[in-house]
Design a protein around this nucleic acid. Structure first.
Lengths: 212, 212
DNA sequence: TTGCAAACTGAACGAACGGTCGGTTAGTAA
DNA sequence: TTACTAACCGACCGTTCGTTCAGTTTGCAA
């Protein structure tokens, strides 16, 4: 009797060298699949049985790689936040005028969002229900604060319009950025740069045609 | 022994006339509370026991008002979608230039979003896991399609810049609108119009200062 | 061929889940 | 007082949940 759908198998050839021991999943491939399934059915809506099916193994096999369901969430959220904070430490995010640093962080966030789509998507849906989620939300709040500061600086510099509340503006701005996870499909479709271009055009110059 | 927290009680005085029978919750007040708790803990993360606690009754009492958990979700999503589609039938959304109709729908969506915050928030988090959710997503797709058409028309009219893909633009636009549910707090804070103003300014004129 | 390391199985656990049911309580109106 | 209506309770059901555990399978290297 065949399986209903091919399981996702991979101890990544990324390293090149094969490891000893029985082949199959390792902690990394389990995390990748888990993040994807969590996004499809929601974290609470995903049972360990669902995960096992997607991995092509039994429930109990998962516990060989990870201590439990919430640990999978923890690792996924960590990957996402690490990548986002890495952007804020890049040269373009620390040097130059505030409005340019803001654009750099926006473009970098789009890049991270596309590269780590499942993890970031998961992060953006966290509600703060458990301790793991609360810690991630705390970190996200620090990131948001950083953005709001950039907008405020831009207003002081005279580069950003002063007739909108910087706090509201920064939230709307990253609301736009984050909304990408709702519709972006990695395979068919737009490159990361095209989206970032459209985003920054709308964000800084606006949608209205400027001819005439 | 006292309850740990005051239950939310209300057979709304909205109607004025008291009904006969034992006072307490009715179907409407159960739905309101349910939508709020669903948002706090997520739909899948909310047990009927959680709902009962928030209502100040036992689990079984809920089934006197509604047939089950998924029915509560169904009703909530219906309220949200009905309100959003009502906006698209208003005069300002059917007459005039496309860009003005677009602005009307955006402002109307903000208004609906603020007025029906819990229901709309729930709608925006639906993943399409169950039949009820799939039906809601279908309706939402029709709404999104309507917006994309408005943007396309605006480009043809020459009112909206043509160097961004209308499909991407409309998604980013309503990504910005929808993100409001992530941070808007009804009590303390901004009026609906202030947010709509900031939103339309950024969306149409952009964030960059235009002086000089 | 043997030894080892890593991945995996199948059965089972207590807890929590959504939902059911027969009976009870608290108001309104005659 | 009585009849009626609507809200509610408590015990219980079958199922699914996350997790555990003792043992088995598989490929690689010595």
């Amino acid at each position: 009797m065949a399986r209903t759908s091919a399981p996702e198998n991979s101890r990544a050839r990324a390293t090149g060298r094969r490891r000893s021991g029985r082949p199959g999943h390792d902690a990394d491939s389990v995390l990748r699949v888990a993040a994807r399934v969590f996004n499809e059915r929601g974290y609470d809506g995903t049972s360990m049985e669902d995960l096992a099916r997607a991995l092509g193994v039994t429930k109990s096999a998962i516990y060989h790689h990870v201590s439990g369901k919430s640990e999978l969430l923890r690792q996924s959220l960590e990957v996402a936040m690490d990548a986002l904070f890495a952007v804020t430490r890049e040269e373009g995010a620390t040097d130059g005028r505030a409005i340019d640093r803001l654009e750099h962080v926006m473009r970098g966030s789009v890049r991270v969002l596309v590269e780590e789509l499942p993890h970031v998507t998961l992060l953006l849906r966290v509600r703060g229900n458990t301790e793991v989620e609360k810690r991630a939300l705390e970190r996200r709040r620090r990131f948001d604060h950083l953005i709001a500061d950039l907008v405020r600086e831009g207003v002081v510099d005279g580069d950003i319009r002063s007739d909108v509340d910087p706090a509201v503006a920064s939230r709307l701005l990253f609301g736009m950025v984050n909304s990408i996870v709702e519709w972006y499909k990695p395979d068919r479709g737009l490159a990361c740069e095209e989206i970032a271009d459209a985003l920054t055009r709308i964000a800084f110059e606006g949608l209205r045609s400027t001819r005439g």
